[in-house]
């Protein structure tokens, strides 16, 4: 009897980790730059395509593929922020006045990136066949290695992010910038650089999610749309702007979705996340770990 639950929960947790990684990026950008980034799904999509290209064209092993895709997508994100977003957010003399122009620009960037991906990689859904090896057997369960990789990698990345934000001067500076840009400046912190870094790290996490989900789903141009909605649901459920909240929300959304699909109906898979979202918003509008302090690691 228990096995009926364990299987969908493990799958839900691993998919939830992917949602959590994307939601982490959205929360990082929101707390660091005061931008709600609507093109983050496309960053995830680009990460997946870049990973796939590295994996197939350069025939790199999976781990270097993952790392390189993370770095390249992070740099792409920093470029996008510097060239397109920054001029929109600096209008008020800082980075804190991100108005409607920024929101519209995010949607525009989303469409632009989809079309660029379409031109480069075409409309077809591409497989990302990674030979992870045989499933792990735990009792009666056969757990595919892709899920183990997702959970393991996501945990490593989240721990690394936590340690960087908590223990290093750069991490402290990123949090300082998220909290108060003027005071950060007066402490001698290079605020524009920290903003670039924050955006880059957020995009890198999105790319990791894309490369991790690749072996389970296909890689395709529209894959960013669905994840954006799920990641937003995750971020809001956990408490928008809270980093642990983003991870928690991601896992909750993933598990609820997976259980719903397993026990109620797979047809309505996408509904369950939003039912959860609505319930959380009704009971606790600030989200489960709703925060007053930004980028609390």
């Amino acid at each position: 009897m228990l096995d009926y639950f364990v299987d969908p929960i493990i799958i839900g947790v691993s998919i939830g980790m992917v949602y959590g990684l994307v939601a982490l990026g959205i929360s990082l950008i929101y707390s660091g730059l005061d931008i709600v980034h609507f093109a983050h799904g496309e960053i995830y999509m680009f990460g997946a395509f870049i990973g796939l290209t590295l994996f197939q064209k350069l025939a790199l092993p999976y781990v270097p593929t993952l790392l390189l895709a993370i770095v390249l997508t992070g740099l792409l994100g920093m470029f996008i922020e510097r060239v397109f977003y920054r001029r929109l957010t600096s209008g008020g003399g800082g980075y804190t006045v991100a108005g409607m122009a920024m929101v519209v620009s995010g949607f525009g960037m989303s469409i632009l990136l989809q079309n660029i991906a379409f031109l480069i990689w075409g409309p077809k859904a591409l497989p990302f066949p990674v030979p992870h090896g045989m499933p792990i057997e735990i009792g009666d369960l056969a757990l595919p290695m892709s899920y183990v990789w997702i959970i393991g990698t996501a945990l490593v990345l989240m721990t690394a992010l936590h340690l960087v934000l908590k223990k290093t001067m750069i991490g402290l500076a990123m949090r300082a910038v998220a909290y108060n840009k003027d005071i950060a400046y007066l402490s001698g912190i290079n605020v524009p650089l920290m903003i670039s870094l924050t955006f880059g790290v957020a995009c890198a996490l999105g790319a990791a999610a894309g490369v991790l989900i690749g072996p389970i789903n296909y890689v395709q141009v529209q894959m960013g749309i669905g994840i954006l909605v799920k990641a937003f649901a995750a971020a809001v459920v956990g408490g928008f702007g809270s980093l642990p909240g983003a991870v928690l929300g991601g896992v909750l959304v993933g598990v609820v979705e997976s259980l719903g699909a397993g026990f109620i109906s797979g047809t309505y898979k996408d509904v369950y996340a939003f039912v959860l979202l609505i319930i959380v918003l009704m009971v606790r509008p600030a989200g489960i770990l709703g925060v007053s302090i930004k980028m609390k690691a």
Binding site: L172, A173, N180, I183, G188, I189, K294
Partner: peptide, 19 residues
């Protein structure tokens, strides 16, 4: 009197020595 409230006193001070 603005500090970074999510951080400890020492972290706040260390940030002042960021340079």
């Amino acid at each position: 009197k603005e500090t970074f409230p999510g951080m400890t006193v020492e972290e706040n001070l260390l940030l002042g020595a960021y340079v």
